[in-house]
């Protein structure tokens, strides 16, 4: 999992690279919360380009991270979500509070890799 941080925008992009299920979520939760408390970002983007599978455990995990990020005064967005995972997002209604953005290439160029977690 790769973390990219843009200090001037306080933007943290986390590229998740796992199949997200109950087993993986336990470890993801801890790692992601570590990074969030380390940078206290104003905005967090979860990049799903390398996520080939997700089930409802992922929804719970995202809602949990959303709460943490909001509590610290930041926003959460998602990008590069595949069709199957988007279907799960739509059924759950999560996109009403965590928006799906088209592209975040622009941030990737501005930011630097701050570590693989």
């Amino acid at each position: 999992m790769e973390c990219i941080y843009v200090p001037q925008d306080k933007l943290l992009t986390i590229k998740i690279a796992e199949e997200i299920d109950e087993n993986v979520v336990k470890k993801l939760r801890r790692k992601i919360d570590n990074e969030i408390t380390r940078f206290m970002p104003r905005k967090v983007i979860f990049d799903f380009s390398n996520v080939s599978f997700m089930d409802s455990a992922g929804i719970g995990m995202l809602l949990g991270r959303y709460k943490v990020i909001r509590m610290l005064g930041g926003n959460l967005e998602l990008c590069h979500v595949n069709k199957q995972i988007e279907k799960i997002f739509e059924i759950s209604g999560i996109l009403k509070i965590i928006p799906l953005i088209k592209d975040n290439e622009i941030y990737e160029y501005g930011g630097k890799n701050v570590g693989n977690i």
Binding site: D55, A57, G60, I91
Partner: peptide, 15 residues
């Protein structure tokens, strides 16, 4: 409390 979403059966039903 375990961050479960309560979507399991809904997803099975719709998929």
């Amino acid at each position: 409390n375990l961050e479960r979403s309560g979507m399991g059966f809904t997803i099975m039903e719709s998929f």
